[in-house]
């Protein structure tokens, strides 16, 4: 379970996050929605222990990544906004490396690598170096890297970015499997139909603040809308009046 309480973060005079609070429960997929620059990625970086909040705190299964980053990170599977693969390493070597960083070794590690490779249909390219990989292949490698240690919590920053239909479908399947096995899944996205299709819980962030949180019905009701996209725009930019069917 991931909990954020009044998170705030600024970079010198820029307030990236002012007040973000939400709860992402186990067994549910939580979507973080927000326009560019709204503070989604900064929030996810505070959850992953990369950034320390100025005020407030994030808790990963009741462990604060700001106070005990390594314990919190051990319970997280993280998928950053950029894949960041090593071109000279094979897919197997990537997964193996990150598995080792999570303390896996020997037969446990080998089994974990083989299982995740099969689950993400990586077996045919398992021994290929990642240089020249397609976006889909890179995404699956990065996802395998995040899942190899079977984390309780999965955090993904814009995971569908640049993916084709097949890639999105594969990703959707993995996230649903994780939710169904009782994991906590948090992801940020711009693709409303995709979000609406798989998320159980929605958190809308605007100007570094949580402006709405709840299930689909609660969000639609709060925005007095019948479509998520309209609700998102009304809640993100309250000054802009959006009527049904006008969203571009």
């Amino acid at each position: 379970m991931i909990v954020c309480n009044n998170l705030a973060k600024n970079f010198k005079k820029v307030h990236a996050v002012s007040d973000v609070s939400f709860e992402a429960e186990d067994g549910k997929i939580t979507a973080l929605l927000g326009l560019n620059g709204s503070g989604k990625s900064t929030t996810l970086r505070m959850i992953s222990g990369l950034l320390k909040p100025k005020t407030g705190e994030a808790l990963i299964d009741n462990i604060s990544p700001a106070r005990a980053p390594r314990q919190a990170q051990a319970r997280l599977g993280l998928f950053p906004d950029r894949f960041g693969l090593y071109p000279h390493l094979t897919v197997r070597e990537h997964i193996d490396y990150f598995g080792r960083l999570h303390g896996l070794a020997g037969r446990t590690l080998t089994t974990a690598v083989d299982q995740i490779a099969e689950r993400l249909e990586l077996s045919p390219i398992l021994n290929r170096r990642t240089e020249g990989f397609s976006t889909g292949q890179s995404m699956r490698t990065a996802l395998a890297r995040a899942l190899v240690h079977d984390p309780q919590n999965l955090v993904l920053d814009e995971p569908t970015r640049g993916l084709d239909v097949k890639g999105v479908k594969q990703l959707r399947r993995v996230l649903i499997e994780a939710r169904d096995s009782g994991r906590c899944v948090v992801f940020s996205s711009h693709v409303m139909p995709e979000v609406e299709r798989i998320a159980d819980h929605f958190v809308i962030i605007a100007d570094g603040r949580t402006v709405a949180a709840g299930n689909l019905q609660e969000i639609l009701s709060q925005a007095d809308a019948s479509e998520l996209e309209v609700a998102f725009m009304r809640l993100s930019e309250p000054g802009t009046v959006q009527t049904e069917g006008q969203v571009q």
């Binding site: 992953s48 390594r70 990170q73 950053p80 950029r82 960041g84 960083l101 303390g103």
Partner: peptide
């Protein structure tokens, strides 16, 4: 490593 965006995934690991 930083240029290839591989630093962030590394710093996210419990190491």
């Amino acid at each position: 490593e930083r240029e290839r965006d591989a630093l962030q995934p590394l710093l996210m690991q419990p190491v």
